[in-house]
Design a binder for these strands. Structure first.
Lengths: 253, 253
DNA sequence: TTAGCCCCTGACGTTGCGTAATGGTCAATA
DNA sequence: TATTGACCATTACGCAACGTCAGGGGCTAA
């Protein structure tokens, strides 16, 4: 019934580092140190560790745990109740956050029935303005004023339904990218479908479509860090793969 | 429409340090630096800060926020959805923790109908053993073997109802301590009631009551760090006040 | 001119470990 | 027996998101 660090770690599921740390802060000292300086834990320590882990599961800080287990067991309850109250506050908080997030998402997707059309219009206007503020200059430089203005015009003219299907399409593109990437071949059927959907998605955003612009955007997915990281975050190597797929689709490769 | 650090801090509710930190990590740079080296923020920065705080409320890491706000707004949604999933996981986790805690508390209080009496007996036995392990030696040294053993005997003999009312009493004592402490006078009526309840609570735990032992325990509340911190955590200065109240109650002061 | 309140830049502390880096120990194998 | 590889040890830096000094300059009013 004696354990070294890694044996107890194995047994309890915590790391060796954790055990050494608990020793260091005096939360759980080994029963003894053997001749070679190894920490040796016994039965009592295993029990204590289980208690500690129990409270840790309950999200109590190590300092809190230290206080709790130093008290006689019949007063530990008070601490538990206290902690319970705090957890409830935390949950209430989290719930509020989630509710806000839900509303935000719903709002942004236009899924909820907007009470007044104006709100939605205002929102789209806001989106356009924001895009302009963030990307305006460089996008205009690359694609020209007319094209950009026309694109914004189109967006402002989009219906809620348009907007929603655009977003659904965008989700579809992502899962397609994952599937197609798995084939490893930008000339595969999946990649072809991916590039096709991507073109369709573009149609929602661009007033006029041209192969050249599509190819240019594909390059930007790789060269512009922001777009790149956006795709990379979902599929490692996704930006390059998407670009290649598009280039193949367009017959450039 | 220009703000210095502390003005923007005031306006937005974050600390000045936070603003400097956001500048440092490049999340929110001031519009300009004036001749004296002061950070000056403008309208755009206020807007950006609001966005940042919005996502921060949603419990997104600053790194995450940086990524989100660098993207064009119509793709920010995907990030939001991702984050939403994570929050839901977090809530499920928290719910599980709270449920466990509820069960534990209920179990320990004996509020739930215990399926078998043995479980409760086992629990009390466990409590006694644990107390013995933690405090046995010194308590026995202070109060003598017979008294301690008798106390344990009494505890083992307690019914669920006894146990529960003991715990309720303990809660009552705490709120009384807060009220009495507010008077600042250990000879006040509230303090008297407090000491009385404390005696009653003791009766649950001690087989025989004596003024001397009660006074001794009162002293221990101050001198023993564990008891002391237990009371201090609820009422600053509570340990001393409780001791004094008891001493007055017993006529020692 | 001095007091009092603003601003700045370091730099260390917090929590709960992860992750090297560097070196000793143990059991088994070549 | 010497070496290898799996353990053990300690020391120390790194992480997130700031809080909190410490030390030094700036601005305005009395």
């Amino acid at each position: 019934m004696e354990y070294t660090v890694s044996q107890l770690a194995q047994l309890s599921g915590v790391s060796g580092r954790t055990l050494r740390y608990y020793d260091q802060i005096g939360l759980l000292k080994p029963a003894r140190i053997n001749a070679s300086g190894y920490r040796i834990y016994g039965r009592k320590e295993v029990d204590l560790l289980q208690q500690i882990l129990f409270y840790r599961e309950l999200d109590v800080s190590l300092e809190g745990i230290r206080e709790i287990i130093s008290q006689p067991s019949f007063v530990q309850m008070t601490a538990l109740k206290n902690h319970y109250k705090q957890l409830q506050k935390k949950r209430a908080n989290l719930d509020a956050v989630i509710a806000t997030l839900e509303k935000t998402i719903a709002d942004k997707e236009g899924r909820v029935i907007m009470e007044d059309k104006e709100k939605f219009e205002g929102f789209k206007k806001h989106m356009v303005e924001e895009n302009e503020r963030n990307y305006g200059e460089e996008v205009r430089r690359k694609y020209g004023d007319d094209l950009v203005d026309a694109s914004y015009q189109k967006m402002k003219g989009m219906s809620k339904e348009d907007y929603q299907s655009m977003n659904e399409l965008s989700e579809e593109i992502f899962s397609l990218l994952e599937k197609a990437y798995a084939t490893g071949d930008p000339a595969s059927d999946e990649a072809d479908e991916l590039a096709g959907k991507h073109k369709k998605w573009l149609m929602y955003n661009w007033s006029s479509y041209s192969k050249e612009a599509h190819a240019g955007l594909a390059e930007m997915y790789v060269s512009d860090e922001r777009f790149r990281s956006f795709y990379e975050s979902r599929v490692k190597g996704g930006a390059e793969f998407l670009r290649d797929s598009i280039l193949v689709y367009l017959g450039y490769k």
